[in-house]
């Protein structure tokens, strides 16, 4: 090509690459190094301690408990979200059976889609405040209020949703599902719309009911999207920092008594509150490894033969 091209290429790449190196790549790399030191926050000096931080991690009951909670999230969040999203997406795209015998979405599906997707544009901080109010531990909370009206909860003894060890994780899962269903519904809808209509119509003529056309046609043809959703929700389940740290009790959340602790809250507390930077870095590395393992396992476990259409 022409002269001066190299200068142009270099000029265009210089700032993006520099910024990316300084703020993203270099910190990523440094984390591995710091995780092998006993570095404490503000001090300038630190010693190499080998794998001590990692062995300490495995004896840290709080962190190990946090991994357990992350795994619970990992099991339930993707399953519930995907099932609901699939069900609603199918209803909106192929659930209606018009008088003409064609296949279409139920009436009003556009409005449903707009409403369902809306939580996705709200920040998790807003959700934290919103659901903090919904889960309020007295009669003023929406959930308690509804249950009291229905007579399911005693007015003088309302449920402390976020302070009950048995409820707190499920309360958090409900928020994530509330937030995520609309997003995956739109994702699945897009995939469903690319399925040719005549496939459904052929099934209809052969006498397939809604359930059959869902399990025999929609689901197999949608498998790629389901897989993507699975991996994404899995990664989200490994994070959970914002909701846990803002909705549950304690500095950076995790309460009551570490019953809702996740890896990211333990890490942030060790870093920002206790100033144990080296230890926090080791947690970051463990989070990376577990996230990568989760992605690979989920991709493997959900692998199916790809169907062309």
């Amino acid at each position: 090509m022409r002269k001066g091209q190299h200068r142009f290429v270099a000029g265009f790449l210089f700032f993006p690459v520099a910024l990316y190196l300084i703020f993203v790549i270099w910190p990523y790399v440094q984390t591995f190094g710091y995780s092998l030191t006993d570095w404490k926050g503000q001090s300038q000096t630190f010693d190499f301690v080998g794998l001590d931080n990692y062995t300490a991690l495995f004896e840290d009951d709080v962190f190990m408990g946090a991994i357990g909670h992350n795994i619970l999230f990992l099991v339930f969040i993707p399953v519930i979200t995907i099932l609901l999203a699939l069900f609603f997406a199918f209803m909106l795209n192929a659930g209606g059976r018009g008088r003409s015998g064609g296949v279409s979405g139920v009436a009003g599906s556009t409005y449903y889609r707009v409403v369902y997707f809306f939580p996705q544009v709200l920040s998790l901080a807003i959700l934290a405040v919103l659901f903090g109010a919904v889960y309020r531990s007295d009669g003023g909370g929406m959930l308690n209020g509804v249950l009291i009206e229905l007579g399911l909860v005693d007015e003088n003894n309302p449920v402390e949703w976020l302070n009950e060890p048995d409820f707190v994780l499920w309360a958090l899962i409900a928020v994530v599902v509330w937030h995520g269903v609309g997003f995956y519904l739109v994702l699945f809808s897009a995939a469903m719309q690319s399925i040719p209509r005549d496939v459904y119509e052929a099934a209809l003529i052969d006498g397939a009911g809604r359930a059959q056309s869902f399990f025999r046609i929609t689901l197999p043809l949608l498998w790629d999207s389901v897989q993507t959703a699975w991996v994404y929700l899995g990664i989200a389940a490994m994070d959970m920092f914002i909701l846990v740290s803002t909705m549950t009790a304690g500095d950076y959340g995790g309460g009551p008594d570490h019953h809702s602790e996740v890896m990211s809250t333990v890490m942030m507390r060790n870093f920002l509150l206790y100033g144990r930077s080296g230890y926090a870095c080791a947690m970051g590395v463990v989070m990376l490894l577990l996230t990568l393992i989760v992605s690979v396992v989920m991709l493997r476990a959900t692998r199916r033969e790809r169907i062309e259409f």
Binding site: H6, V9, L13, V17, Y20, I22, F23, V24, I25, W26, P27, Y28, Q30, T31, Y34, I235, M238, D239, F241, M263, S264, M267, M268, F271, S277, A280, C281, M283, G284, V285, M287, L288, T291, L292, S295
Partner: peptide, 29 residues
């Protein structure tokens, strides 16, 4: 140009890591 693919993957790879991995050094940077 030489290294084009490499640079592209270098950029895209950054999206795969959790941000928590970088937080501590990022703060000090």
């Amino acid at each position: 140009f030489r290294g084009n693919r490499l640079l592209y993957y270098f950029f895209v790879a950054g999206a795969m890591f959790p941000v928590f991995l970088a937080l501590v050094p990022l703060f000090f940077m």
